[in-house]
Design a protein around this nucleic acid. Structure first.
Lengths: 238, 238
DNA sequence: ACAAATAATTTGGTCCGACCAGAAGGGACG
DNA sequence: CGTCCCTTCTGGTCGGACCAAATTATTTGT
């Protein structure tokens, strides 16, 4: 029994959205349960199905709900992960022009800088082990193979895992997702592979040494050189 | 004359979305110009207005388009800023539960830590001046007044501005937007105001001293204490 | 001739009713 | 007990309709 929200408000579906969000936050529809069908909501709120659909669509795109293709009313995803995936979505949009890429890369540098600092200061045994494992996997992989690049990225992934904060990986993962198609245009120099690996090695060593300053410096050098690579690829495209 | 996109595809509006995005990226609708009206697009794509509206809505929510309230077909925003505002949107959703708040706050700490480091290392005259101005404005404001809190936040804002990266402020601004309504529940101790101001002062001094390590430490202390404040407010709500 | 007031048109916002195609649920039958 | 079929439910799409606001065109007043 929501108040009547069709009074004087200029917008329409936004009221429904607010109300639904409020109800969800209030725990009315626990995670994973399904909302009433559109036609029910329509009666319940005294509005047309059009508005209901708009509200549901919006919330779905934003990640709070999950509207399955056909049938299955609407299932609420564990809101949190959903928001994260929405974040990935948006970040991907951010990557539509070079300025956006630059800024996002910049953001990544800042985040990972804090990441390695934190790692150098507070990394526990398990974290070190995970980093070591990623590093060794990378070393074992054949240079220039898909597996090599995969393990290469995995190293950074572990860095994010150490923070135990799902918000950060979302940014990283969107970035990597965007980058993949561009990779085909990048020159795959085995020499560069080596550089990458050695940079990771140096970062790892700095973390082992518990030297945040050095770790950050190594990471900056590493990412700066990666950025140059991206730039060169971009320039070639122009 | 887009190819027919109504063949066998399971989805519907998604095709229109893809097509519109492609056209926009191709420069068909330059920034700031307005798209054809819904009814025109409807004919053009051979689909119902329902689908057109869904596509437009989605792109609007994602920030690529701007659907004005009434009349005015659809105007394309300078895509980049749009994506930023969408990011704010998503981040706001992230703040729906305590875990999300904690993670976002954590993210904020990491970002601002990098921020002050960068400021301590590379801040130019103008940056220092801006920080000083923000600080003095805060000092001049009457404790516990709205203006005080405004200038208080402004200090952090300048920190973000120094990075000249619009992605970061989006996160911060979403956070602040979310926090505002919670403020009414927070105890407004003049003593705490002082603490805040002094913390900012110390951060500023560290930047002046070009001491990244100290600056980061001061910032961490500052934000950690702010976090405790937030927690206490939350707990009281439970 | 120009400006202001007024009428006509355009356009998004909302609503309604209808149909389709999968999916879910319920039986009938082997 | 499992399988097949039929009904019902639900989201997806469609077309038409009306409204109100914003725009544009027209008329009017000076």
């Amino acid at each position: 029994m929501p108040q009547d929200e069709d009074k004087k408000n200029g917008r329409a579906a936004d009221d429904v959205i607010r109300c639904l969000v409020a109800k969800i936050h209030a725990g009315e529809y626990p995670d994973g349960t399904q909302l009433p069908p559109e036609r029910t909501l329509m009666e319940e709120y005294g509005i047309s199905r059009t508005v209901v659909r708009e509200a549901v669509q919006t919330l779905s795109r934003q990640g709070l709900l999950e509207a399955r293709p056909r049938y299955r009313p609407i299932v609420r995803k564990p809101g949190y992960d959903a928001a994260i995936s929405a974040l990935e979505n948006v970040v991907t949009h951010l990557l539509s022009d070079q300025k956006g890429v630059r800024n996002l890369f910049d953001t990544r540098i800042m985040i990972e800088a804090s990441l390695v600092r934190r790692a150098a200061r507070h990394a526990v045994k398990e974290d070190i082990a995970a980093l070591k494992a990623a590093l060794e996997a990378n070393e074992a992989a054949i240079p220039d193979s898909d597996q090599f690049y995969q393990t290469d990225r995995a190293f950074h992934g572990v860095l994010y895992d150490i923070a135990r904060n799902p918000v950060l990986p979302a940014i990283h993962s969107a970035y990597v997702t965007w980058l993949s198609p561009q990779w085909s245009r990048m020159p795959r120099l085995p020499q560069r592979n080596l550089e990458n690996f050695e940079a990771h090695q140096r970062i790892f060593d700095a973390i082992l040494l518990r030297d945040p300053e050095l770790a950050e410096q190594e990471l900056r050098d590493h990412l700066d050189s990666a950025w140059l690579q991206v730039c060169r690829t971009f320039d070639k495209a122009d």
